[in-house]
């Protein structure tokens, strides 16, 4: 791993860290949300960008984490760290089961199978409405969100603490993704994306690599969902809907698929775009749609992908 790649990522994280001393309250709150959702987008990118598997159903994993955390804390009596851990483990289990099933489909079939399973998951949330409160959802009260951990009090209602926790999570993620994609494992994934049959012929167990990528991707989505529920105190069926499967696709495409920092950038840019628009118009749908179309037509590689192609060849 070259030094400048490490330096670039460290610089991004340091910049985010430094921002909290100068940024306004609003920027702090917004960036917290973006960082949590960036974990979702990065998990998605591992599967879509690097392995070439376009899922239209990642909301089911996001929702897995979301509901595991929300139901775990409000009904099962788990503490916040326990619920987070449980949500992560359930994320591993659910994405493993899904991986075994959906990876049998290829191409467009894979997209539709994931879409269908995600829709079934969404309906399941509604079906168990007595536990999930369906669309209305679950609020996690502050009494749960202020807890003591390893002898010190953690107050998740504190915006700055949340910011730094989200940043910590993002830092772990960036490190993980960077290590993964620069490793042999990552190179094999890219080889699968470029030519699955040839990679198989070279003796790689393609199915196993795809499965592992799928499970990591699904688990990261669940981690993001759990963090979202615990930090922002809410879980509801809307967050399991198709819309939330399309979000990470959009963010990844915008920032640049198969770049380490692209999903993060895409999440941020899209967030700010919608946020900017919602104040004076009601055309947020139009913006989302237009960005998607424009990306497909003119910038299939996204922001960082285009920069890498033209200027910075070394960009990971």
């Amino acid at each position: 791993m070259t030094a400048r790649i490490v330096l670039l990522h460290l610089a991004v994280l340091l910049l985010l860290f430094a921002l909290q001393f100068i940024a306004s309250d609003y920027v702090i709150l917004t960036l917290t949300r973006i960082m949590v959702l960036a974990v979702y987008a990065s998990g998605y990118n591992l599967l879509f960008g690097y392995s070439g598997l376009l899922s239209l159903g990642h909301a089911m994993f996001f929702a897995t984490g979301l509901y595991a955390a929300a139901i775990g804390t409000t009904r099962a009596g788990l503490s916040v760290p326990e619920a987070f851990l449980a949500a992560t483990l359930i994320g591993v289990v659910v994405s493993s089961i899904m991986g075994v099933i959906v990876l049998r489909a290829r191409g467009v079939g894979f997209m539709i199978v994931t879409l269908m399973f995600s829709q079934a998951a969404f309906l399941t949330v509604l079906y168990f409405g007595d536990y999930t409160r369906g669309d209305e959802g679950i609020v996690i009260l502050d009494t749960i969100r202020i807890f003591s951990f390893l002898g010190r009090t953690i107050d998740l209602t504190d915006p700055l603490l949340r910011y730094n926790l989200a940043l910590a999570l993002l830092a772990i993620l960036v490190a993980l993704i960077l290590v993964l994609v620069r490793s042999r494992f990552g190179h094999v994934l890219v080889a699968i994306r470029e030519n699955e049959d040839r990679t198989a012929m070279l003796g790689y167990d393609v199915a196993r690599y795809k499965f592992i990528a799928f499970v990591i991707s699904g688990t990261l989505s669940a981690v993001s969902g759990a963090t979202y529920a615990l930090m922002f105190a809410y879980a509801g069926s809307t967050l399991a809907s198709i819309q939330y499967s399309i979000h990470p696709l959009l963010w990844t495409l915008l920032g640049g698929a198969s770049t380490t920092l692209g999903p993060m950038l895409g999440t941020g840019v899209m967030f700010l775009l919608v946020d900017f628009a919602s104040g004076f118009t009601n055309v947020s749908l139009l913006i989302t749609g237009a960005v998607l179309i424009a990306l497909v037509l003119f910038f299939p590689k996204g922001i960082l992908g285009s920069i890498r192609q033209r200027y910075l060849k070394w960009l990971p």
Partner: peptide, 23 residues
Amino acid sequence: IIAEDDGTDPGRGAEVVEKFATQ
């Protein structure tokens, strides 16, 4: 009155409340 669209979406709704309070 400072009106913001929330898309009838709880996620966006929460963001809008943050925007009201801090921005």
